[in-house]
């Protein structure tokens, strides 16, 4: 008998895509997508149940469908998606608590996969260059989405202690980018003038949206317990990413950054939380050795390729695409060559 999978957060892009992809797998019998709002896109073979994970009703969904695998994608990243930070925190933290409480009661439950984020490591000047899964944050996140993820992971650890028979896999994904996904990061890089922190250049890592789905599918299909960092290879400096996106930079001294961020948030141009500013100041890089060796997952896109795919799909770099820059360079060199030969 195949698996019966529940996917939370199925109405959003990643959750929906995951539900659709999982439903197409031969050893998956049924996929049930859950979310508070109806899906905006086709879920394919997956079923959809409109339910709130903050509500104990979720327990009935688990038992009536005899769910054996739960993929928790329901942690919301930006207040705008939820309609305010209070609602967001409630969905993320209370929702996870309720979901895990229902999972704990379930007799059919065998597997739990949780989508977390590398933001749980925080960002700060005292960070090691790369975080591996066993390291504790030096500057633990104090607010926002990152803090929610820390709390979610805490509840997941508690769950795995109480239900040792359930295989628990937590994936800490780097910033996800891709042609179709909209996040605080993609909004940021789409700004015509991108504010940066003066005197700092953060190291960034990205994972492509296709790779992030593939990694979660791998964790769902295979039984590999543990926590894994998931990211594309290599890093991009913030300045480098902005140039690749063909944007202009506006360096702002660190003390003024919160004010500028608050203004942009109120204007609705970008979601600029304090943890986002910390990340853009100090950056963060994770070690993905365990992802390769234990999870057995190899991302198709590197950090740079993932970012370029996003830039190309949005048509961001229309001013000076790499080909045109290369052509200009060739022309200049060509002219020089001629000049040089004439003078020789």
């Amino acid at each position: 008998m195949g698996r019966v999978v529940l996917v939370t957060g199925a109405s959003r892009h990643l959750g929906g895509t995951l539900a659709r992809r999982l439903a197409e797998l031969p050893d998956v019998d049924r996929v049930v997508g859950v979310d508070v709002v109806p899906p905006s896109h086709d879920l394919g073979l997956a079923d959809f149940v409109r339910a709130d994970i903050r509500n104990p009703v979720i327990g009935h969904v688990l038992s009536s469908s005899e769910i054996d695998t739960v993929v928790h994608m329901g942690v919301i990243a930006t207040p705008r998606q939820a309609g305010g930070r209070t609602v967001m925190k409630e969905i993320n933290v209370i929702g996870t608590m309720q979901l895990l409480a229902a999972c704990q009661k379930s007799s059919t439950m065998r597997k739990l996969v949780v989508k977390s984020s590398t933001s749980v490591y925080g960002s700060g000047p005292r960070d090691p260059a790369m975080f591996s899964e066993g390291m504790d944050p030096r500057d633990a996140p104090r607010s926002g989405w990152a803090k929610d993820n820390v709390e979610v992971e805490g509840y997941v650890r508690g769950f795995s202690r109480r239900r040792p028979d359930v295989t628990v896999t937590t994936l800490r994904l780097a910033n996800i980018v891709g042609p179709r996904l909209t996040t605080a990061m993609t909004d940021y890089f789409s700004l015509p003038v991108v504010p940066t922190v003066l005197g700092h250049d953060a190291r960034l890592q990205f994972v492509h949206e296709d790779d992030s789905i593939d990694a979660i599918i791998r964790a769902t299909v295979d039984d590999v317990p543990g926590t894994f960092n998931v990211s594309g290879d290599g890093v991009l400096m913030l300045s480098q990413a902005i140039r690749r996106a063909g944007r202009a930079t506006l360096p702002i001294a660190a003390p003024f950054m919160p004010a500028v961020g608050g203004m942009m948030r109120r204007m609705g141009v970008a979601d600029f939380s304090s943890e986002q500013v910390r990340y853009l100041t100090w950056g963060r890089v994770v070690d993905t050795a365990r992802m390769r060796s234990t999870l057995g997952f190899e991302p198709e896109y590197s950090t740079l390729e993932a970012f370029d795919d996003f830039v190309a799909a949005r048509g961001l770099n229309s001013m000076l695409p790499p080909e045109r820059a290369a052509a200009i360079e060739a022309t200049v060199v060509d002219l020089l060559g001629r000049g040089g030969e004439r003078s020789a």
Partner: peptide, 26 residues
């Protein structure tokens, strides 16, 4: 001199378009 200028132009092009690599330490 032309070779030196050419390499400077190349350098400038790579910098402006972000076409260079840094390692995990930056």
């Amino acid at each position: 001199w032309d070779e030196r200028v050419a390499s400077a132009v190349g350098f400038l092009r790579r910098r402006i378009t972000g076409d260079y690599e840094v390692d995990e330490f930056g």
